[in-house]
Design a binder for these strands. Structure first.
Length: 587
DNA sequence: GCCGTTTTCGGCCCGACTGTTTTCAGTCG
């Protein structure tokens, strides 16, 4: 087993994390001590982020070494691992209406109101809630009123319509449009996208924009009056929130220019990262908030994020790392990874052309890639069984090879690699014979059909083929649309390590597959990741931005990424790999 | 419920906005 790798057995970690998370939800609605609630939340998060098998820690009597896990919680973990149950959880859940937990996900509706509605109106689930909203009884409760109920209703509508997840690509488009609008109309001294978009999360709940201005009122006005606003949720002196016609929520915060850096840090989050910074500040007798770092109520210089981190004894932490996954501790020791940048990417190893289901010619794709400063591109069209995608016959592929050979004579300092995205068939065989594969530079092997037929075994079988360089979109998920196939990534990574095969980080914003957590584990095991766009048109080559975002969230450095290598190096390594495997076969 | 070089008890991040109040509770980020 590859060391430090998450796999099927760490499912237990997540099962226990989910239980603690539910305990926290129930206790919160029951108005239990908020710090106790937080303790369970923290433990749940720690277990989710844990990279080792919890049973292993149990056997070594090391459960309490997990930060946030003390005696009581360690005992509960122990109980779960020994009996499959946690008594406290069983007791709580047996007498608690399960439908109430879902209500916590509704905006503007928190634990206090849920508890009130449950107690006074016997609300037990979402349906009950809708009834008491409609019949007016909710608004008559003490502390409630018409407007509050309207807000809760809006929260329910939002929850039911979208579940609140917007793809990073969509969110970024909206955010950039609003930033441009405010830049043109409001004369800001500074402006930035903040929040989870700046951290490049794969999906975001809302869009955060921060402005530095001496005229906050006019900024707010220009913001709420902009086109596409369906509803103004809030609009105060320095802060406003809108809902747009596309359903997205946008929050604007306006600060004075001298507070911009502190505010940017604050509104970039994540919440967990911020909490960590605040408690760190407190330990140093400092206070940090969105206005700066303070010592005895006196602001100490905070002109930039770098400066603020420095005042806390930390090196600057890239936004993509700010999730409280150990980045603060490393920043204290000045040992943060040197994250991969756009400039480090030398080529794209998985793009399509109009030979299969792409929209543009090989030549156009190559010219666009060259214009982006790339040194190479691999044309990897679909193989013959991919009928839905106009997969190539053997004859068509040979024709493509000739075209690429001829095109390559026209380019200086740029190379078109001959490749294919070969289907992994239900029996694990590849969709092209070896005599075709051996003519190609890059083979991406992917599953595109029969998702529920032993995906792990099929991928492992395909990896036995020495021509395979990359496993394409390894889990097959489509964000917000389709769960991935049930693949045991630990086994795939282990095999990739043995065979010198890379896993893809597919940069298409609907895929982002591997995700950040899986890519980090792959990195930790020492295998290479290929950040590919899977572009079906020239403009799709820009998806690389999202792939790099996820890669940075996964702590990836230049050395971890296959397409940070020159194409000469990639091809040399491929040759060496094949020679070694042939020698082994001969023996 | 967790934690500790202010250490076994008393803390636990902090501020804006809204709506319902008439000084504050709830929610959010």
């Amino acid at each position: 087993m590859v060391k430090g790798l998450k796999s099927a057995f760490t499912m237990k970690n997540q099962e226990i994390a989910d239980i603690f998370s539910t305990i926290a939800d129930i206790l919160e609605i029951q108005n239990e001590n908020q710090f106790k609630v937080n303790a369970y939340r923290k433990a749940a998060r720690a277990l989710t982020d844990l990279n080792v098998d919890i049973e292993q820690l149990q056997q070594q009597d090391q459960l309490s070494s997990i930060p946030g896990v003390g005696k009581a919680i360690a005992k509960k973990i122990d109980q779960y691992l020994n009996t499959g149950k946690i008594q406290k959880y069983e007791e709580l859940i047996s007498e608690f209406p399960k439908g109430l937990l879902e209500l916590l996900k509704i905006q503007n509706l928190g634990p206090k109101t849920i508890a009130l509605a449950a107690k006074k109106l016997n609300v037990q689930n979402l349906d009950d809630l809708l009834v008491v909203i409609e019949n007016g009884s909710l608004s008559k409760l003490p502390g409630m009123g018409e407007k509050k109920v309207q807000k809760i209703k809006a929260g329910v509508d939002y929850y039911l319509s979208s579940r609140g997840n917007i793809l990073i690509s969509q969110a970024l488009t909206v955010a950039e449009e609003i930033v441009r609008h405010l830049a043109e109309t409001s004369n800001p001294e500074d402006i930035s996208i903040a929040g989870s978009i700046r951290r490049m999360k794969e999906t975001v709940h809302d869009i955060d924009i921060l402005v530095a201005s001496k005229q906050p009122k006019s900024c707010i006005k220009n913001f709420v009056d902009f086109k596409g606003v369906r509803e103004v949720i809030a609009a105060g002196e320095t802060k406003a929130s809108i809902r747009r016609t596309d359903g997205s929520q946008v929050d604007l915060r306006v600060v004075s220019p001298e507070n911009f850096a502190a505010a940017l840090l604050y509104f970039t989050g994540s919440k967990a990262h911020n909490v960590k910074l605040r408690s760190l500040a407190k330990n140093k007798s400092l206070k940090i908030n969105e206005y700066g770092v303070f010592k005895n109520d006196r602001k100490i210089a905070t002109d930039s994020e770098e400066d603020i981190y420095r005042k806390l004894g930390l090196s600057w932490i890239a936004p993509e790392l700010r999730e409280d996954r150990g980045e603060v501790e490393l920043a204290e020791e000045n040992r943060l990874p040197v994250l991969i940048n756009r400039e480090d990417i030398l080529g794209d190893l998985h793009v399509h052309s109009n030979y299969s289901d792409g929209h543009h010619s090989i030549e156009s794709m190559a010219e666009s890639a060259a214009a982006m400063g790339y040194q190479y591109i691999a044309i990897c069209d679909h193989s013959k069984s991919a009928n839905y995608a106009n997969g190539l016959s053997a004859e068509k592929l040979e024709q493509q090879i000739k075209e690429i050979d001829s095109l390559n004579q026209r380019f200086d300092n740029f190379k078109i690699l001959k490749g294919a995205e070969v289907d992994i068939l239900p029996d694990g065989a590849l969709d092209f014979p070896d005599n075709l594969l051996q003519q190609l530079d890059i083979i991406v092997a992917s599953i595109h059909s029969a998702f529920n037929q032993n995906p792990t075994e099929r991928i492992l079988t395909a990896m036995n083929n020495s021509y395979v360089d990359i496993i394409g979109h390894p889990t097959g998920r489509l964000i917000n649309q389709r769960q991935g196939y049930d693949v045991d990534l630990a086994k795939v990574v282990e095999k990739a390590q043995q065979k010198g095969i890379a896993l893809e980080l597919n940069a298409h914003p609907l895929r982002l597959d591997l995700n950040d957590v899986d890519a980090k584990m792959a990195k930790d095991s020492g295998i290479k990741i290929a950040i590919n766009t899977d572009a079906h048109a020239t403009k799709d080559l820009n998806f690389i931005e999202f792939g790099i975002g996820v890669a940075r969230r996964a702590w990836l450095e230049k050395n971890d990424v296959l397409n940070c290598q020159t194409c000469q190096k990639i091809l040399n390594n491929k040759r060496k790999k094949q020679d070694t495997q042939n020698e082994m076969l001969e023996k």
